[in-house]
Simulated scan of single mutants.
Amino acid sequence: MVRPPHVLTQTTTRVLDPSDLDAALAVLDREPVANAFVTARVRVAGLDPWRLGGEMWGWYEDGMLESLCYAGANLVPICATPRAVRGFADRARRAGRRCSSIVGPAEPTALLWRLLEPSWGPAREVRSQQPLMVTDRLPDDITPDPYVRRVRKDEMETIMPACVAMFTEEVGISPLAGDGGLLYQARVAELVGSGRSFARIDAEGRVVFKAEIGAATDRACQVQGVWVAPEYRGQGIAAPGMAAVLKYALADVSPVVSLYVNDFNTAARAAYRRVGFREVGAFMSVLF
Rank of each mutant, 00 (worst) to 15 (best):
R200V: 00
P139I: 12
L28W: 08
D179K: 12
P118D: 10
A239T: 00
G205A: 09
P108E: 07
L259A: 01
I213D: 00
D136T: 14
V2W: 12
D202S: 11
S258N: 03
R94T: 10
V27E: 03
V188N: 05
I159P: 01
T13M: 04
F283Q: 14
L75C: 04
Y147M: 01
L183V: 07
R94V: 07
I213H: 01
E125L: 11
L111D: 13
V134Y: 05
T217N: 02
T81F: 03
S258T: 02
A45R: 12
S197V: 00
P255R: 03
M1A: 13
F283Y: 15
T39Y: 02
Q222K: 06
G54T: 04
F288P: 15
Q235N: 02
F209A: 08
G181Y: 14
I173F: 14
E157Y: 05
G205H: 09
E55I: 02
L65W: 12
P240S: 05
F37I: 10
E55N: 10
D263I: 06
D202V: 00
L246H: 02
L182W: 09
T81R: 07
R51E: 12
D218M: 06
L182G: 07
C99D: 03
P118R: 11
S100E: 13
A229M: 00
A36R: 06
L116A: 05
A211E: 06
G195C: 08
A251E: 07
G46R: 05
P4E: 10
L25F: 09
V256K: 03
D48F: 03
A26E: 12
M166C: 13
F167N: 10
A92N: 07
D20L: 10
G236I: 00
V280M: 07
W59Q: 03
I102C: 10
G46L: 08
Q10M: 13
E55T: 10
S119A: 11
P122M: 13
A239L: 01
P131I: 14
V44T: 13
R219F: 05
R200A: 11
F88R: 11
M156A: 15
P175A: 10
D154Y: 05
D140K: 15
G46K: 07
D263F: 03
H6R: 15
I102L: 15
D48K: 09
I173N: 11
G195L: 09
M284V: 04
D202A: 01
P146F: 05
D140E: 15
A177F: 03
L250D: 06
G172N: 03
H6I: 06
P122I: 13
S194A: 13
Y272G: 02
P4Q: 12
I102M: 14
P161C: 04
M242P: 01
G181R: 15
V38A: 02
